[in-house]
Every structure is written in C-alpha cells, then in structure tokens.
Amino acid sequence: MAPIINLIDKFKTTMHHQVDAIRDINRKYRTPRIKMTRAVRLSLLGIRIYLIILLSILLYRFITLIT
C-alpha cells in the first residue's frame, strides 16, 4: 500500500508543479507585446470570426450526424 500512496503523492506534487508552471506562463505572457495596430486588431478579429464560423459548422455537422 505504501508504494501506491507514495506514487499518488508524487503524482499530486507533479500536477501541482504543472499547475504552477501554467500560472507562471499566463503571468509571463499576460500582455501581448506586439503593437496593437489597426492591421493587427483586424487580423485577430478575422481569426476569431473564422474560428467561430468553422466551429459552428462542425457543431452543426456533429448535431445532424447524431440526430
């Protein structure tokens, strides 16, 4: 039983480290460094709209396939 508990503890510690690492990454890259010109803003908006449309099509296909 003890080795299993040790293993679970090690896993927990590793997971905690990973969560901390993700927090650090989010903190480090919180502010985009690129200058937000009109072209950059428009491009990012374009990608967002593109992704929303594409995901809507995928969702529609998924629902029609199930039903």
Partner: peptide, 9 residues
Amino acid sequence: FDAFGSFWG
C-alpha cells in the same frame, strides 16, 4: 505567446 498573449498561445 510573447507577441499575442497567453490566449492565442
């Protein structure tokens, strides 16, 4: 990550 932030990253 660096240029566009963590969401796009």
